[in-house]
């Protein structure tokens, strides 16, 4: 049998249930580290919550209402809150899978040790991506509770906002991890900022697509965060439609491609 080839295929194609297999050993390692400095990851939730409060008690006073999905008119805070949920899922995932993974890859040499054991490159990729997802899910859960407390949730569909945030986390952590394997030095991380900041500011986070000229609308519609924002907004505002299936599919496909590239790249980087 061509064992390694078969397992390679199995390792590269993400299995239906992620994180099962040896990758979970890496999750165990990360949790052990996080346990000691729990306040650092925990403080990561502060940023989106501060944004939420700032919108609610500050900018919300300046912008009274804004056009929402299906020609609705929506108070500003419930409009922005789901977008902040989506972008914080993006930020958390990217942060974990770029800076942290790069540090482990190039400086701490964590994966060199890991790959000397029966674990493989795909186990590393899967372990890190699933860990980032877990962390993102914890943030998203806290955020959704905060939204509910501030009255920014307007539909029972919102229970699906958490899985939606997980999907966003998966998509961005997988692609972030793949991108990290191409980084040559810390200065390359400014490219990450170059990708994240415009998405955060322009993916209909703060105001609707109709604000832009048509050509810019098309550009925005191509970005992954736009799909994440649209999905979470439909769910928490309760305007769920067929389009949301498309948004979800976009995110899942992005995650699958990112994971496959990341596994392959870790292989070529470390198993030379």
């Amino acid at each position: 049998m061509s064992g390694e080839r078969a397992t390679l295929a199995l390792r590269v194609v993400p299995p239906a249930v992620l994180g099962f297999g040896r990758g979970r050993r890496l999750i165990e390692r990360n949790l052990l580290v996080a346990r000691r400095t729990w306040w650092v990851p925990l403080s990561g939730i502060a940023e989106p919550v501060f944004y939420l409060l700032s919108i609610g008690i500050g900018i919300g006073k300046l912008v009274t209402s804004i056009p929402g999905p299906h020609h609705s008119l929506i108070p500003y805070a419930p409009y922005v809150a789901p977008a902040l949920l989506a972008s914080s899922a993006m930020n958390g995932a990217v942060y974990e899978c770029t800076f942290n993974v790069y540090f482990k890859l190039k400086y701490a040499k964590i994966y060199d040790a890991v790959l000397a054991t029966p674990m493989g490159a795909a186990d590393v990729a899967r372990g890190e991506v699933v860990y980032a997802m877990l962390r993102g899910t914890a943030y998203a859960a806290i955020f959704v509770v905060m939204m509910a407390a501030l009255g920014d949730i307007r539909s029972a569909w919102a229970v699906f906002a958490l899985p939606a945030a997980v999907m966003i986390g998966l998509a961005f952590s997988a692609v972030g991890m793949a991108a990290t394997t191409y980084m040559r030095g810390w200065t390359d991380f400014d490219m990450v900022q170059l990708a994240l900041l415009p998405m955060f500011l322009f993916s209909t986070t703060f105001y609707p697509l109709s604000t832009y000229p048509r050509w810019l609308q098309v550009v925005v519609e191509l970005t992954p965060l736009y799909h994440g924002v649209s999905l979470t907004r439909s769910l928490t505002l309760g305007y769920v439609g067929v389009g949301d299936v498309g948004h979800a599919a976009y995110l899942v496909a992005m995650g699958a491609v990112g994971l496959a590239v990341a596994s392959r790249r870790i292989r070529t980087l470390l198993l030379r």
Partner: peptide
């Protein structure tokens, strides 16, 4: 990026984009 591009992006997104809704409303 951090020195030139992000100021421009913030001004466009907040000042111009969000600003259009602030100026339209009573803000």
């Amino acid at each position: 990026m951090s020195t030139f591009v992000s100021p421009l992006l913030y001004l466009l997104a907040m000042g111009v984009g969000l600003g259009s809704f602030v100026n339209k409303g009573g803000g």
